[in-house]
């Protein structure tokens, strides 16, 4: 089967067989918001922020295959409301103190809230979980308070680094990411791992020691651009 076309918010998009809606959208410069998905990593479909309406059904764009003549709604008031709810859930599930977080300005969760215009008083309760900080490793620290369970580090370590230093443990609201050992020092994690790199952790959970706050305000990833800018600029080109 050769390429086919479908629609996202009225724009005609060409896709190759086997491509997901998100992959096809990325290629043509249509940004579909996402947190657990990251280029080069297996799709997970866990955060659900990429929810779109495809052929009338709400699906995760990162895992849903594109199909000929599919009509996809991406940036509608309704879909963005769902996304605001989801991002709000992630904020209130953990302990996200933007003012003191070194990821602030480079944080995808925060940037997603900006993009979605999340400024209304939260309807959700704060869960204020008690989560440990693991600073055992000489070069890396984990502040689990900020973890949104996206699992990008899990997949990066397993599939790219070939190590498996992280994994999911527990169930339900207690499900969380754990190191493959009593703490990170007792794993073969290295600061040079892809899983530890700045691009993998969307928030400020995985911290490379001695390099915090390196970029001043004004020069950070989302100081001048909305998240998704890098994809959307392709459309203008």
């Amino acid at each position: 089967m050769s390429g086919f076309s479908f629609q996202i918010d009225g724009v005609e998009v060409t896709a190759k067989p086997g491509q997901t809606i998100m992959e096809a959208a990325d290629e043509v410069g249509i940004y579909i918001p996402r947190l657990c998905d990251h280029e080069g990593l297996r799709h997970q479909g866990g955060c659900r922020v990429c929810t779109v309406k495809a052929g009338g059904r709400s699906v995760a764009a990162c895992t849903q295959p594109a199909a000929p003549d599919l009509v996809v709604e991406n940036e509608t008031p309704h879909i963005n409301k769902l996304r605001r709810d989801l991002v709000g859930m992630l904020f209130n599930e953990g302990n996200h103190l933007c003012p003191i977080c070194e990821a602030s300005g480079n944080c995808e969760l925060q940037a997603m809230a900006y993009r979605l215009g999340m400024t209304e008083p939260t309807k959700f309760p704060y869960l204020e979980p008690c989560r440990p900080v693991d600073a055992s490793h000489p070069d890396i620290a984990l502040d689990n308070n900020r973890c949104i369970s996206c699992g990008r580090c899990v997949r990066a370590s397993q599939d790219v680094d070939g190590k498996g230093i992280f994994g999911y443990v527990g169930r339900g609201i207690h499900r969380h990411i754990a190191a493959n050992g009593p703490d990170l020092r007792h794993t073969d994690a290295e600061v040079t791992d892809f899983a530890i790199s700045a691009e993998v952790c969307p928030v400020g959970c995985i911290i490379r020691k001695r390099e915090g706050f390196a970029r001043p305000i004004g020069e950070r990833d989302y100081d001048d651009h909305l998240i998704g800018y890098d994809i959307e600029k392709k459309r203008d080109e």
């Binding site: 933007c98 003012p99 977080c101 602030s104 300005g105 925060q110 809230a113 900006y114 993009r115 215009g117 999340m118 400024t119 305000i217 909305l226």
Partner: peptide, 9 residues
């Protein structure tokens, strides 16, 4: 707010 103006820090 203008989306571009929103900051949490």
């Amino acid at each position: 707010f203008e989306r571009e103006h929103i900051r949490f820090d």
